[in-house]
Amino acid sequence: MTTVTIAAIDGAGQFSAYVARPSGTPRAAIVVIQEIFGVNLGIRQKCDNLAADGYLAVAPDLFWRIAPDIVLDPDVPAQMQEALGLFGKFNQDAGIRDIEATIRWARAEVSSGKVGCVGYCLGGRLAYMTAARTDIDASVGYYAVGIDGLLGEKHAIANPLLLHIAGADHFVSAEVQAAMHAGLDDQPKVTLIDYPGEDHGFATEVGDRRSPEAAERADAATRQFFADHLG
């Protein structure tokens, strides 16, 4: 486990990224896209788990333009409010460019050249945008927010995308979930899996939000998805 520095493709500077490498030759690379809490312990553990599965995992600091290297705990109310404030200031288009820079870095690090991504919360939304706007080989989004406003981009999704939907998500209403199904069920590259009764953040590695049974089911589906599409 280490930290690397990646140059932004828009020339705005450079950002740090947490990297976990497998013990042997990587099967492929996976970009791990943060929640609104920065590259915190949970996101780093996601990287470590992927490395244990044989992937090179890299989590870029997407908040570097507004709060470099910030790490927040969603179980601390004041830090949750700070995270929500950062979400309001975050430029998502710039974030996608930073993910694109990370994809390019990662492709050069693995002999297969294959790169996937997995994101959570805000990162789930960005995983959808990455699937629509980049050449990523496979994408996974957990409890992505605001996808109903991005359905106009669905035809640009050329490679497989898996979305895990929390049925009782207090950030994603039942109406939005219905719109996701109505808009995406017929998109052949997109798979949606519902988790009835589960709330936002159910697959976090640490903290109060974790729902172990649903998290393990979602993570097993993610592992199989990456095995199928990345190797």
Rank of each mutant, 00 (worst) to 15 (best):
A203P: 11
D98L: 00
G11P: 13
D148W: 02
R107V: 08
E35R: 00
H229L: 14
I66W: 04
A57S: 11
T222G: 11
M180F: 01
V172L: 00
A78W: 04
H181M: 07
D137Q: 15
G207M: 03
D169K: 00
G231L: 13
C117I: 00
Q79A: 12
C47D: 08
Q45M: 10
F63Q: 13
I70V: 15
Y18N: 10
R125G: 08
D208W: 04
D73Y: 06
A108M: 10
L41C: 06
G167I: 03
A106Q: 08
I96F: 10
V19S: 10
L84P: 03
D98R: 02
G183A: 09
M129Q: 12
D148K: 03
H155P: 01
A83E: 00
I136T: 13
I30W: 02
G231M: 13
G38V: 00
G183H: 04
I99L: 08
F87K: 04
M129R: 12
C121G: 02
F15T: 12
A178Q: 15
G231K: 09
D194F: 05
D93T: 02
G116F: 01
D199S: 01
D169N: 00
G183P: 12
L192D: 11
D186N: 15
A182G: 07
I30F: 04
V118E: 12
A20M: 09
Q79K: 06
V58S: 11
M80K: 07
F15E: 04
F63M: 14
T25G: 10
A138D: 06
A214N: 05
G197V: 07
Q14E: 12
A108F: 10
G24V: 09
P77T: 00
A57F: 02
R97N: 13
A156M: 13
D148F: 05
V115S: 10
D186C: 11
